[in-house]
Design a protein around this nucleic acid. Structure first.
Lengths: 150, 150
DNA sequence: TCTCTGATTGCAAATGATTTGCATTTAGCC
DNA sequence: GGCTAAATGCAAATCATTTGCAATCAGAGA
């Protein structure tokens, strides 16, 4: 099948991918590149099914999307989000691992807005030390009804 | 089967249940009372399966647990939490709807610690007005490795 | 460039959480 | 005590996700 995936690459992530993959004994395959490109063109988290549908017809299997996404997640290139429905969503990690953000999700129409502020980091540290936990992280998402749906 | 469910009732929630249910044309059934009692004796959120297992053998069906939990949730008596694994967890709403809290979960052993502080409420309001959203809520959970698992 | 080998993929079946259709039972009003 | 809509049990359906296995492929080395 024809590769449209890395021909019009833009941004630094594709080279990140190749770099990260290579250093860890993983192969740079067409599905992985294609999935990464889908994520690069999206500004909101996608479910695995949405990723699959965004790939050119029959490009790869849903199982491969799952496996690739998990790999990218392990490498820190992809971030997982949970919006409270049963499905995990994935978004490209942009601007380094430290740049984290949250979302405001409309419970009626599923509109997603990025929330840049994060106030939980201080509390996170406080909670970590207060309870003797290490490697502390947090998940924070906001829900509501957007102007159009009110 | 013998009813152990509301014989040793303690705390205000059971009367809350009966009150809430009655005013909305819902029936007070043995499964609903039993499920509520399980939740009253637990201080951390439970999955539907854990609720079922905590009920005396074969007391009711898993489908009934789901339906009851959803009803209790709609009535505001039960709160849903997501710990990032695939399963929803449910906890009794204590001390009125305003008393909300979060959790610190060990990613190794699933130990759960309640986090009383909540710093997201201010931000929640700010985000609501800033984006024109109404009925804004949020989900915030902390994850880490507990002292025993380090 | 050719070969080799372990990593990766596709497919289909398994798993686990959750929902649903339908016939039967039951709570609570009369 | 009987009636009726609501609730339950059961089994099957649905949806997200994982997994076993045989076929394929990327990339290192000849």
């Amino acid at each position: 099948m024809s590769k449209e995936c890395n021909s019009h690459a833009h941004g630094p992530e594709l080279s990140d991918l190749t770099g990260h993959l290579r250093t860890q004994d993983h192969k740079i395959t067409a599905p992985r590149q294609a999935i990464l490109n889908v994520l690069r063109n999206e500004k909101h988290p996608l479910t695995t099914r949405q990723i699959l549908d965004a790939l050119p017809g029959g490009f790869c299997n849903l199982a491969t999307v799952y496996r690739s996404i998990h790999l990218l997640q392990r490498l820190g290139l992809v971030q997982r989000y949970d919006f409270g429905d049963g499905a995990a969503r994935f978004e490209l990690t942009r601007g380094g691992k430290d740049h984290h953000h949250h979302h405001l999700i409309c419970t009626k129409c599923a509109l997603v807005i990025e929330v840049q502020q994060c106030i939980a980091l201080d509390l996170e540290q406080q909670i970590a030390t207060g309870n003797g936990f290490t490697k502390v992280s947090h998940k924070l998402e906001f829900f509501g009804v957007c102007p159009d749906c009110q």
